[in-house]
């Protein structure tokens, strides 16, 4: 049934969907609330590793799907708690401080993944993971998992769109634009930021869980800064303040390189392992510079609140 679908293409599409999900969550943090986060890989990686360790190393008295569900919930909760802790640490810092703080957290996760080899498998990696179902060939299982992950990311997009329309979203924008003024309106800005960071970090952890199952093997190289950069590049190119910014931006960056060029542009074979990965990062960087110079609000432009309000309230 899935003969037309290449296993590598499923993997590429899965990666695109993952980065879109992360970009959407960073949009809520940085685009609305202006809480800088350079540690996306840390929250995502924590979910990935906590799930991997719990699923692969603990002898559970029950099997799948309960084993998967328990481990996934625990990993998501671990990322959410880490998000709460990091948000508390950086809540009074400026953008520079928040960037350094979150990057530091991601570095700690990477170092733990590498050095705590008894638990994480170190550089050799952590295996023993699998799908919580068996629908037949590996490709079929992977395709089902890709669809499930896409559904989760669609849920994240729906959540982002809801936040844009909700009183909570307006509070986040107010906090991001002018925090002292927002504090003088009767709502705790600190609580709003901690809540948002906790929820979004937990969702990043859940995406990490989906990654762990899809590839059934975890190595420290999974949790490097590359995933943070991919999410940020896509989001900034698309438009950091727009709900659809991450979707559009990631399609023009990660999807363009990892799917269109990899699968549909006939290039010499050796380019795929050497030239393209380097060109990918260089072109991402160049595109970021050009967009920030000539269209600083990203491809979709600035936040379109008047249009949104017209739709909601049907102003004449």
């Amino acid at each position: 049934m899935l003969d037309w679908l290449d296993a590598f293409l499923i993997s590429g599409l899965f990666g695109v969907v993952q980065i879109i999900g992360l970009g959407l969550l960073v949009h809520l943090q940085m685009g609305l609330t202006r809480v800088a986060n350079f540690g996306v890989a840390g929250f995502w990686g924590l979910g990935l590793y906590v799930f991997g360790i719990l699923y692969g190393k603990v002898d559970w008295p029950f099997g799948d799907p309960w084993q998967f569900l328990v481990c996934a919930i625990a990993a998501t909760a671990a990322s959410a708690l880490a998000g709460l802790f990091v948000a508390w640490l950086i809540s009074d810092l400026d953008v520079d401080g928040a960037l350094v703080g979150t990057l530091g957290f991601a570095t700690v996760i990477f170092l733990l993944a590498t050095a705590w080899s008894d638990l994480t498998g170190g550089a050799a990696g952590l295996g023993g993971l699998g799908f919580p179902y068996d629908a037949g060939p590996a490709k079929t299982n992977e395709f089902i998992w890709f669809v499930l992950t896409t559904a989760i990311v669609a849920g994240i997009l729906a959540y982002v769109l809801w936040v844009h329309r909700s009183p909570y979203g307006r509070l986040l924008i107010a906090v991001g634009t002018n925090e002292p003024l927002a504090r003088s309106l009767g709502k705790s800005s600190t609580r709003a930021k901690l809540t948002l960071f906790t929820i979004t970090s937990g969702m990043m952890g859940l995406l990490g869980v989906m990654q762990a199952v899809m590839f059934r093997f975890i190595i420290p190289a999974n949790v490097t800064i590359n995933i943070t950069l991919a999410a940020l590049a896509g989001l900034i190119l698309g438009g950091i303040t727009r709900a659809w910014g991450a979707v559009v931006g990631v399609l023009f960056t990660v999807a363009l390189f990892d799917i269109v060029i990899q699968f549909y542009v006939p290039l010499p074979q050796e380019w795929y392992t050497q030239a393209i990965p380097v060109a990918r990062e260089a072109i991402f960087g160049l595109a970021l510079v050009l967009v920030l110079l000539f269209r600083p609000k990203g491809m979709l432009g600035e936040m379109k609140r008047p249009q949104l309000m017209r739709r909601i309230h049907d102003f004449k």
Partner: peptide, 25 residues
């Protein structure tokens, strides 16, 4: 409190600014 400068949330519409003010009460 109405500050002298930066007294509105520029990204929000007028109605949204008023809605933000009505979060309490």
């Amino acid at each position: 409190y109405v500050p002298q400068e930066a007294a509105v949330f520029p990204d929000l519409t007028i109605l949204e600014n008023l809605q933000v003010g009505a979060m309490i009460g």
